[in-house]
Amino acid sequence: MSHEVRQKPDTAGRPRWIPVTACDNIPLREGRAARVGDREIAIFNFGDRFLAVDNRCPHKGGPLCDGIVAGDCVVCPLHAWKVSLETGAIERPATASACVRTYPTRVEAGVVLVELPADPKARSATDTTGGGRAA
């Protein structure tokens, strides 16, 4: 945990919205891999919204950003596993129980923002202070 985070108790350890890229940089019905901190996130453009998931297929690590979009799913280019971009669930094969992490997105001033989850270490710190406030 960085020194800086500790100095900002309002945001520390909470989910954060990160501006990623101009909407135009992701073509309609395609995905692009985006480096966000130490994560690689695949962001897909559905025209009226963007959907984001970790850019690794749980099967063999295929780059989901390179898959073909089918409804609100993407089909991994390596072995055609079908991943729901809404829920992160594996739709095919039916037997797979793994799940891909999804990220909330929103658009602001023509820029796609992705919400990163709370840093687990930061969260524990926040929980402590939060507990303090409640008491």
Partner: peptide, 16 residues
């Protein structure tokens, strides 16, 4: 055919 056809995207804002 598209500006990011080959180029990976870097988040505008660093996470930290």
């Amino acid at each position: 055919v598209h500006p990011t056809q080959f180029i990976p995207i870097q988040a505008i804002e660093g996470v930290h």
